[in-house]
Design a protein around this nucleic acid. Structure first.
Ligand SMILES: [Mn+2]
Ligand SMILES: [Mn+2]
Ligand SMILES: [Zn+2]
Ligand SMILES: [Zn+2]
Lengths: 133, 133
DNA sequence: TTATAGTTTAGAATCATTCTAATAATCTAA
DNA sequence: TTAGATTATTAGAATGATTCTAAACTATAA
């Protein structure tokens, strides 16, 4: 069975052609940072037509299932990340591109005290890059 | 002269009633995290009417002048921060509220290598909080 | 004063994302 | 293998935050 189909089956998602295409893409390039717009463009270039609503539905579903991770970077674009490891990002605004920073490339020697009654949910670290000079 | 007016004068911004109201608010509560929507509500409660466009115009202008700092938190809301120190944030999604983390409450013992041809522009660290249990 | 440049505003426009509700595909039990 | 039920896809409308437009207003300096 196609790897993409296995992934979908394991998450109880029907292997529609659209889903297979999306999961396939994610599996092929491992460690992807995707945006709905980027995905649509990718599929358009390959003459695969998937509606924007479906792209969003599925990326969100995959995030719900824990196959992708979802977050936002600075502006109001939603990003999906197939790297499930704990990690951080450089953001290259020139290219509108994220670059992974491995968890062990940043170490904290001191961490702030969490406010009373609360616990840490997730940490977002984004280092915004600009061109030298 | 009113403190707010001095601030505006120093930045070459005409002290209109709307601007004075906004800067006044920022000066009174020092260290504020504001959102256009929050400001509008605040002024509505005090029966001061300032249009949404003006709120945005002025918050953005104040950010341009370096009187506020502008950034985004997770979702697509724009935040303005009157704390100009280098610092980070907790985000309490329950209350839709930011809490400052002083720069010296986090220390890095290891920092990632910046990609070639690039330099660090800014760092965003947001620790998302959720309620205990 | 008055002319000019700067400001405010209502409402339209934009853009990313979600919703709606009609249609289509997949699955399952018999 | 089907029929019926369930789940997915889709076009297009709706939403919400922000910005734009262009007309009316205000501050300022001469
Ligand atoms: Mn939005
Ligand atoms: Mn937006
Ligand atoms: Zn990543
Ligand atoms: Zn702050």
């Amino acid at each position: 069975m196609l790897e993409a189909k296995k992934v979908l089956k394991k998450s109880n998602l029907r292997p529609t052609s659209q889903r297979v295409a999306i999961v396939d893409y994610i599996l092929q390039k491992n460690k992807v940072h995707i945006t709905a717009a980027k995905l649509i463009t990718h599929f358009k270039n390959k003459n695969i037509s998937i509606s924007l609503a479906t792209i969003y539905n599925n990326l969100n579903e995959l995030a719900d299932k824990g196959i992708l991770r979802k977050f936002y970077v600075n502006n109001d674009k939603m990003w999906f990340d197939s790297n499930l490891q704990d990690h951080y990002h450089f953001y290259d605004s020139e290219k509108d591109e994220l670059i992974d920073i491995d968890k062990n490339e940043i170490s904290f020697s001191k961490s702030p005290k969490i406010p009373d009654g609360k616990i840490k949910d997730s940490i977002n670290i984004i280092i915004n890059l600009k061109n030298k000079n």
